[in-house]
Design a protein around this nucleic acid. Structure first.
Lengths: 212, 212
DNA sequence: CCCATAATAGGAACACGTTCTACGTTCTGA
DNA sequence: TCAGAACGTAGAACGTGTTCCTATTATGGG
């Protein structure tokens, strides 16, 4: 599998069985209830408020069941992040992205994403910190998120949903570097080291620099 | 204070009292013992092995004292990271950096740093994950680390220890973006998503791109 | 329908970060 | 010198992530 091909969405099937698609309706239902509960708790109280007992209770499953579906709090939160990114990706692919240059389009998308996340600071704090804290055992979930992000950025660079063949190695490199910067900027914002405008400014400068 | 000026090392005095310089000899001694114990435990067993009771015991202080010096495990580990970076910075400033272009010099420094960290995977895992997990309460310590990193990169760009005035805003932007990429690459390596050669390659590509 | 197996509920138990209490020791300033 | 503050020790106690155990309930094949 080439790197470029690895961007097509259906490659997600190479992940662990813990992702969607597999299992009975009841199982899909439980998984959804758990992720919904996680989302709500995170949105209201951030990382600390996502307590496993609270998630289990709100999702109406036993604690052991929660751990059967998600082997740790970090897996749970990164999976929630993954779902958010999937949603964002679908929404973004639904229509053309405004902007005349790749830089304009990428900035449009990143700023839209960033504004969305900054509108839900607690949720963002919870998901971002989980993503950052993840260790090697969460590699699959993290990889999925990285894939979504790269896909979003390459999509923005091209302006339309690109064919797998139209994505060059150069595109991937650019998208990854932009993703790196975006993540660091988000982290600086989450930890209170930079304000929202500063975050936007840093991203603007960096993207202009990378896509110059 | 301008951004460029904020790079001079003695600005560290604007931090909380928990950093060096202040306190009696006994206090400096305790602080050093604690950081040494943290270093050793992290080096041997990574993040999970740095247990507060174990650190206290090895440093020969009471648990409460440990918490008096470092208000949380994350503060402790990020402070240890800060000490490592300070050391690296001093060593790097001791002599000229080889390389004909800023890109060459930056890559020389980054690869040296990265090799050093990859030679101590457990230690790197512990320090990196703490850095990533940090929340707003650790902003001071995180900021200090970011400062060291920016300083190291600008130093490498110039080839010699630069005067404060010689550092332009452009330099800072470049250094920050490079720092972002370096951090993300390190994180990908720590979480096992990319191998050491891949990490080096990604850094190489990104730095060439940014400093082109 | 019945059995074997897996999945779930409910909750106790454990580990480690963090806080708190009680008491001794050291420093400081009048 | 002495009172009081700050610091230190020892260890109990608490909260939350994680594991484990047992009984009960789906589920799917014969």
């Amino acid at each position: 599998m080439t790197i470029a091909n690895s961007l097509s969405t259906d490659d997600r099937s190479t992940n662990t069985a813990s992702t969607d698609s597999a299992g009975s309706a009841a199982q899909r239902d439980r998984r959804k209830r758990i992720l919904d509960a996680t989302y709500e708790l995170a949105k209201d109280g951030g990382f600390d408020a996502v307590q496993m007992r609270a998630v289990a209770e709100r999702a109406d499953v036993a604690l052991g069941t929660l751990y059967r579906y998600f082997p740790s709090k970090i897996h749970l939160l990164v999976s929630a992040l993954d779902r958010e990114f999937e949603d964002a990706q679908v929404k973004l692919k639904a229509r053309e992205i405004p902007g005349d240059t790749p830089g304009d389009r990428v900035l449009y998308v990143l700023k839209r994403l960033t504004r969305g996340m900054q509108g839900d600071p607690k949720l963002t704090e919870a998901l971002t910190r989980a993503f950052m804290f993840a260790d090697a055992s969460v590699a699959n979930e993290i990889h999925a998120v990285g894939m979504s992000m790269t896909s979003i950025v390459t999509h923005a660079m091209h302006g339309t949903v690109p064919d797998s063949e139209a994505i060059t190695d150069e595109d991937i490199v650019l998208a990854r570097v932009i993703g790196d910067v975006w993540l660091s900027a988000l982290m600086a914002w989450v930890t209170g080291r930079s304000s929202a405008p500063e975050t936007a400014q840093h991203m603007e400068t960096a993207v202009r620099l990378i896509l110059r």
